[in-house]
Every structure is written in structure tokens, then in C-alpha cells.
């Protein structure tokens, strides 16, 4: 008893620093960027650029957060995003009906992830394996369906589709940023203020105890995947609309790794049960700012990933709270 009391007092300052270290990192990076680049970095437009460029992976990272908090992982997100986009684009191209296309895409994305969740829970196969397999399956089927190439939007049939992502709200806010904000609010709300959110944390922390609390843990894990599917679908729509196309080989590559990086940088523990959805936002900002700064500073682009790697490891080192002796 006394032991914990002393630890709390002793660690209060450290705790403030460590529990907000991620925010501090962002602030430090912004300051560094400002001094290094003067006016250019701090401009509204540059920030919107950063956000727009990372909104798609950022949205996926929101879904990834739930999957990781529930104790799983999803490696298939990049390929699945291409699959969803292919379905949506080909439907829109052949019918010209955008609304139906979006609904179909979202349903397909949610269904795919739900299937993944069912195999993981009912089949008791580790999610790493199932989603690794799914990645190959989706990617391969897309390449087969698109014959190794891509689908381009038929702008005569569905001229509005590209506006979904390329429209500027009030003339200055890119729509992907708006979608990210909406998805963030939705996922943040679920994580904090719903029974499902609470149960996702519980499952990730102690699955057995959660099951023995009379909670259907399989259902919770499947629903975490379904939410991942929703995030992937939205990302697929944003991406295909922004590009006006989707490519079976070049789209969505390494999105899973970037999304995992964002969640991990944001302090969401790979062990499950720990971390906040806001972490995924901070993680996106950090990765976004690094990418941006490197471009603005004119650093060799080949070095970007080295910086990312350092940041990922450093972020986890900084946030590690209790070190066991």
C-alpha cells in the first residue's frame, strides 16, 4: 500500500510528462519546423496539406486502433482497401449511381473485415496469420480482376465522384480532412462512451475475465474488425475519389505498416487493452509532420523511412511507463 503511494507522489511530474509526451513531441516538432522553415511550415495551407496527405492512412489507423486494443492486428488493410475501391469504382462506372456505389463499397468493406474477424475468433487462428493470408488473397484477386492494371473513373458517367475528395470546404479545407475529423469523432465516441468501446478494451486487457463477466468476447472482437472494415471502406472511397483511379499493384502498398506505425507512435500498446484513440491522431500528425519537414527541408527522400523508424522506436521508448527490473 505505502509502496504505491510513494510511487504516485514521486512520479507525479514524470507522469504528467510521460502521459502527455506524445503531445509534447508534436509541439517540439512544430517549433522545430517553424524555426527551420520560417513562414512556410506554419501556414494554414501547409497544415491542410499534411492532413490531406495522411487522411487516408489516418482513417485506417483509427480502425487499426480498435483492432489492436482488442488484442489483434490487421495486415490486410492496404489490399482490402484496393478491393473495396475496385468494387466501388467498377460499380459507379457501370451504373453511374454514386450513392449506391458508396453504400455497396461500405457494406463490402465491413463484410470482408467481419469475415476476417469470424475466422480469427471462431477458427481460433491468430489474426496476424489470418490477415496476412487475406492480404495475399485480396491483392491477388484485385490483380486478376483488374488484369494487373488499374480502374479509372469514367468521368462522363459519374463526374461528381472525384469531387468527394477534391472539393474544398469553404474554399480552403480539403474534404479528406473533413472525413478524417468525422471518423475520428465517431471512433473516439465509440471508444469512450459506448458499451462496445468499453468491452473492446476489456477483451484486450483480459479476455478470459471478460468472457467470465458474461460478455460475448468473440462478438466484441468481430465487431472491432467490422469497425476496421468501415474505416477501410471510407479510406477506399476517399483514396479512389482523390486519385480518380485505383491500381491493383501500386495502390495501398504498406498502408498496414503505416497505420500500425501511427497507432504505436500514439501510445496504443500492441499487447492490447491500452491506449487512447486520440493517440492515433497524434501518431498521424507526427508521421505527417516528419514527411512534410523532410520534403520542405530538401532532405534526400530516401531517408524518410529512416526518420520514421527512429521516431517509432523513440515514441515507444518515451511512453514506456513501468520498466520491469
Amino acid at each position: 500500500m505505502q509502496n504505491t503511494v510513494s510511487k504516485q507522489r514521486f512520479g507525479s511530474l514524470k507522469k504528467v510528462v510521460s502521459s502527455n509526451s506524445i503531445v509534447l513531441v508534436v509541439i517540439v516538432m512544430i517549433i522545430a519546423g517553424t524555426f527551420a522553415e520560417g513562414s512556410q511550415f506554419l501556414s494554414f495551407q501547409n497544415f491542410m496539406n499534411i492532413l490531406r496527405n495522411h487522411a487516408v492512412i489516418g482513417i485506417i489507423a483509427l480502425g487499426m486502433s480498435f483492432v489492436i486494443i482488442s488484442g489483434n492486428i490487421d495486415l490486410s488493410v492496404g489490399a482490402q482497401m484496393v478491393a473495396v475501391a475496385a468494387i466501388t469504382v467498377s460499380f459507379v462506372n457501370s451504373t453511374g449511381n454514386i450513392v449506391m456505389g458508396l453504400i455497396l463499397g461500405i457494406l463490402a468493406g465491413c463484410a470482408m473485415s467481419t469475415v476476417t474477424g469470424i475466422i480469427v475468433t471462431k477458427g481460433r487462428v491468430p489474426s496476424f496469420i489470418v490477415t496476412l493470408g487475406m492480404q495475399y488473397i485480396y491483392r491477388s484477386l484485385c490483380m486478376f480482376y483488374m488484369q494487373g492494371g488499374g480502374f479509372y473513373l469514367d468521368k462522363t458517367k459519374a463526374p461528381f465522384y472525384t469531387q468527394i475528395s477534391n472539393y474544398m470546404l469553404f474554399g480552403k479545407i480539403p474534404m479528406p480532412v473533413v472525413y478524417y475529423a468525422l471518423m475520428f469523432l465517431l471512433f473516439w465516441f465509440i471508444s469512450r462512451y459506448t458499451k462496445l468501446g468499453r468491452h473492446i478494451y476489456a477483451v484486450g486487457s483480459n479476455e478470459k475475465a471478460t468472457k467470465l463477466s458474461g460478455i460475448n468476447t468473440d462478438k466484441i472482437k468481430i465487431l472491432a474488425f467490422t469497425l476496421m472494415g468501415l474505416a477501410i471502406s471510407v479510406a477506399a472511397i476517399v483514396e479512389s475519389s482523390r486519385m480518380g483511379s485505383i491500381n491493383s499493384t501500386s495502390s495501398g502498398n504498406a498502408y498496414e505498416l503505416n497505420a500500425i506505425a501511427m497507432t504505436v507512435i500514439g501510445g496504443i500498446s500492441m499487447e492490447g487493452g491500452k491506449g487512447k484513440i486520440s493517440g492515433a491522431l497524434w501518431g498521424m500528425l507526427i508521421l505527417g509532420i516528419i514527411n512534410n519537414m523532410i520534403t520542405l527541408l530538401g532532405v534526400n527522400v530516401y531517408l524518410i523511412n529512416a526518420f520514421k523508424g527512429v521516431i517509432i522506436i523513440a515514441a515507444v521508448l518515451l511512453q514506456r511507463k513501468d520498466r520491469e527490473l
Partner: peptide
């Protein structure tokens, strides 16, 4: 330790985990 407590959660969250529907207010908790 193994079967009953959810280690990353607070006292309050552990007590409420079996009956969250009682804490509903509209769609949120």
C-alpha cells in the same frame, strides 16, 4: 488475477463491466 480482474481498467470500470447498460444515457454511457 487470471479469471476475474481486468488489469488495465480502473476500480470503477471493473465494477461496471457486467452491467454497462445500466449506465446508458441515450446512446452514450
Amino acid at each position: 488475477k487470471e479469471n476475474a480482474i481486468i488489469k488495465d481498467m480502473s476500480v470503477q470500470d471493473n465494477i461496471n463491466i457486467t452491467a454497462l447498460e445500466k449506465c446508458r444515457r441515450g446512446i452514450s454511457l
